[in-house]
Design a binder for these strands. Structure first.
Lengths: 217, 217
DNA sequence: TCCTATAATGACCACCTGGTCATTTTCAAG
DNA sequence: CTTGAAAATGACCAGGTGGTCATTATAGGA
């Protein structure tokens, strides 16, 4: 259905250019504010072609969206495999660093993600939020459950809340590396890799032991 | 300068209606996508009047923005006073609950905040991010420092990172009460007050003691 | 070389936007 | 009741949007 066969028959260089220009446009302007006129001018094709390939603006975005979901899925599958043998906190560490790497590689895809969270006028938003939820449900939750089973995590842990807790922290850590002032002065914004690495360790320490002076019961 | 004297001379009922309609419009559509035509129709005034009162669309938003900043400042000042005597974690608890109350009272103002974080086309965005930063720098930081001084918090705490940590968690807690699926299934989304209360306690426990089975050194 | 199905094109359309400004309305002072 | 300054009005403008479709270009088979 989307994209139409006509698009798949294109030479892959042209396909790539369309894909990347569209990602860029949506990443910087959101959905409604993204301009097809601007896009076709940058790509160097006629406006009609976009409608031939994708039906309409929403179809184009759907294509971009599916592509992005695949990218994320792939990255997630890989880090899951890479950290399979490690203990709980090492896996969290690996996941955060994988996130940072992903953003370095696909900054514009991540920007679309950020925009979609709080901008209601995106198509597929319900599906998107569902996907976001799946991350915590299918990725984080089993990790936490395993951590408890292996006695790496406190036995009285509220698993639901712990998943939410982790989700919040990991997400914000990544956001802070992209949006200035969201790092609250920790120096995460556009920080070089080795700086991120150091910060992650300190961050994990807090997740691990909390802030209180006396250990809890 | 903004708004012009003409606006201040209006009967306060009309002023209120303009203010609230504008907040609503910006909260649901962001800046560029917000429509002055729609607004004036809802308010029941001529389009020209908006330009008479505020100069242009940006001026109108500036007025809304200043109003919102004052609301937040007031709320922050109050909770600071209310929790002044309590220990660190009680103050955090109070701050989160104050946030929840604020959002209940001014849901649309909070929506504008959420939109401004990742939508670049808002006017005053630099100033906004600066304000957000001030929250962590002037509100959270002294609290953490006091906590360490009083030995409520571990002495080896990385204060910068702890502030970032808290900021991330508190912000997400509030976001989750507004955006479905961001609560990762903890039941925060549009939850009744008593439910929120219970969740906050569990949440604070995690901030306090962390997730690890064994207490850290 | 011709024919034909398919793909590419861009002028054009209706619609909506923020903003302008000549005109009309309002209303208090004289 | 008259006057005049200030305020309100909404038709109008240029510019941008997503989308359409008659026309043109392309290319592979006969």
């Amino acid at each position: 259905m989307i994209p139409r066969e006509t698009f798949n028959n294109l030479e892959s260089e042209k396909k790539q250019k369309i894909l990347e220009t569209a990602i860029d446009e949506f990443a910087f302007h959101g959905f409604r504010q993204a301009s097809l006129n601007r896009m076709v001018q940058r790509i160097g094709i006629a406006k009609g072609s976009i409608f031939q390939y994708f039906g309409n603006k929403e179809g184009l975005f759907q294509f971009i969206f599916n592509h992005a979901v695949e990218l994320v899925r792939g990255s997630l599958r890989q880090v899951k495999k890479e950290t399979a043998g490690s203990d709980f906190f090492e896996r969290i560490r690996g996941s955060i660093l994988a996130g940072v790497r992903f953003i370095e590689k696909h900054p514009r895809v991540y920007r679309i993600y950020l925009k979609m969270i709080f901008q209601e006028d995106f198509p597929l938003r319900a599906q998107f939020l569902q996907q976001v939820h799946l991350f915590s449900a299918e990725y984080l939750r089993p990790m936490v459950e395993q951590g408890v089973a292996r006695k790496e995590l406190r036995p009285d842990l509220d698993v639901d809340m712990a998943v939410f807790f982790l989700d919040a922290l990991m997400d914000r850590f990544l956001q802070a590396s992209c949006v200035s002032f969201l790092d609250a002065g920790v120096g995460l914004y556009q920080a070089p890799p080795h700086e991120i690495d150091r910060r992650v360790d300190e961050f994990i320490k807090l997740i691990r032991f909390g802030m209180a002076a006396e250990p809890g019961r």
